[in-house]
Structure formats: C-alpha cells, structure tokens
Nucleic acid binder design. Structure first.
Lengths: 118, 118
DNA sequence: TTGACGTATTCTGATATGGGCATATGATCT
DNA sequence: AGATCATATGCCCATATCAGAATACGTCAA
C-alpha cells in the first residue's frame, strides 16, 4: 500500500503547504480561482487541483458566478485537527505546567496507596 | 515533483493515522518499541519506521535502556500545527460568532466610509 | 457563431510512500 | 563464544503524490 489519499481527510489535505496557503488566503474572504492564482503565484491548474482536494475534505465551498468559481473557506473541516492537537497543548504550554505537576503528584499518591483503601 | 517528504515537518508527520496513534499512546507515558507494537497491533518494522519519522520531526525523543529503546512524547513539535489551526477556530466555534458579527459590521462601515474621512 | 475568457480535467513523468519480508546491529544471558 | 532478545535498516512492490503541459468545458461578448 502507499500513502493514504490526500483526499481522505483534513489531516492529509493540510499536509501540503500550498493548500495551507490557499486556506490562509481564503480566510480573508471569498476569492475566485484567478485571484488565488495571482495571490499565490502558482499555475492555474495546480490551484484548481489543490482546491479540489480542499473541496473534497470539505475545507472550502464553491459558488458559481458566471464563468468564475468563487471559493470560500469552511473552517469546520479543520476542527478535528484542532481537537486532536489541542490534547497536546499542555505539553508545551507553561500555563499548564503547574497543573501537570499536581496531576503527577496525585498519580504518585495513587500508586503509593496501592490497593490499600477503597 | 512529488509531495514534500513526510520527514519534512510535523504537518506531514501527523498526516499518517498510525503516527497519530503512536503519539496518542505515548501521551500516556514512555513506552518501549515492543509495547508500542502490541498496543497498536502493527508489525515491529513499521512501528520502528513510523517512530523514525516522528523522531525526525522532533515529536518524540528516545532513550536507550539495555536492549530496549524507550520513546517519549515531545509535544512541542506539534505547536506549529496548533498555532496554525487555531487561527481558524473562530470559523466553527460559536463563542466567536458574536465577535465575527461585530468585525463584519466594522468592515462594512469602513467600506461605506470609502476614502471620505481620514 | 465564433472567439475569448475562466476554470477543470487529463495525461505524463519523476519521486515518495507505506507495508511485508529478510536481515543487520547491538545488548544480554548461558 | 554462541544463542537469544529488542530494535533498526534495507529492499521490493503497488500505489499515490505533485508539477507541467495540453486540452476540454462552460460562459459570455461581438
């Protein structure tokens, strides 16, 4: 087997830097493909292809307007990523350091307690 | 060109579900490769290989102990991901909805203002 | 209708991926 | 030293990736 399809989930979709850039631009509001092309300095077909991936994982929505397609961010698709990575926030954020210390102490007490009481 | 090497950055590293699983287990504390193998139900070589990727992006640290290697989570490597995705939190979190409304109103006023005053 | 424009799709090619299997390496025990 | 355990590496394969170029498609204007 090879790598999972990028179209599989948001985690794969945002692994590509250009796609993150696209989302970053779209965070500023709706854009046509042409605008994205010039803002990113990428070739039009690549932009369309990256947009397709983002569309398939639900990170963007499209709207037709004459011969243009207007893309709009749909951040909800990124929530699973945020949820997952937030679990690790305490590992680097000092604000949680103190809490962690307390938790560790509790854990150690628990172990010392063994099966004694309870 | 193909996709950027998975070993390049944390975004790529966590695009692989097994690697996320590895991190999730390691979040529970230090583990030997063998323990990870049985907890994930993966073949030992694949586990070692995934661990290598995680090591290269700095998401885990290793410690030698006799013939075992004890792996430990290093969440700091995930911070860039958290930072990036947090920018999008307001797009799905209701708590920010009200703020967004205000910002949009301000923006519209700005536009109506045109180049008038200022 | 014809042609220009805006965007999507297709094809190709170089490269990377992840799994499976065999094997190398290194530490421990007898 | 030899055997065994724990882990890492190497090789192969099927498949997926991304970029680039060509082209197809749909819409609008003349």
């Amino acid at each position: 087997m090879a790598r999972a399809a990028t179209t599989t989930d948001a985690f794969n979709a945002i692994a590509e830097p250009r796609r993150r850039q696209l989302l970053d631009v779209l965070a500023g509001g709706e854009r046509s493909v042409g605008e994205l092309v010039s803002e990113l300095g990428l070739a039009q077909p690549q932009v369309s292809k990256h947009l397709r991936v983002l569309r398939e994982v639900g990170a963007v929505d499209v709207r037709e307007d004459g011969r243009q397609r207007l893309y709009r961010l749909n951040g909800r698709a990124l929530k699973p990523i945020h949820d997952w990575v937030s679990e690790y926030e305490h590992t680097w954020d000092d604000r949680f350091a103190a809490v962690d210390v307390v938790l560790e102490e509790l854990q150690q007490q628990e172990e010392q307690d063994g099966g004694r009481s309870r």
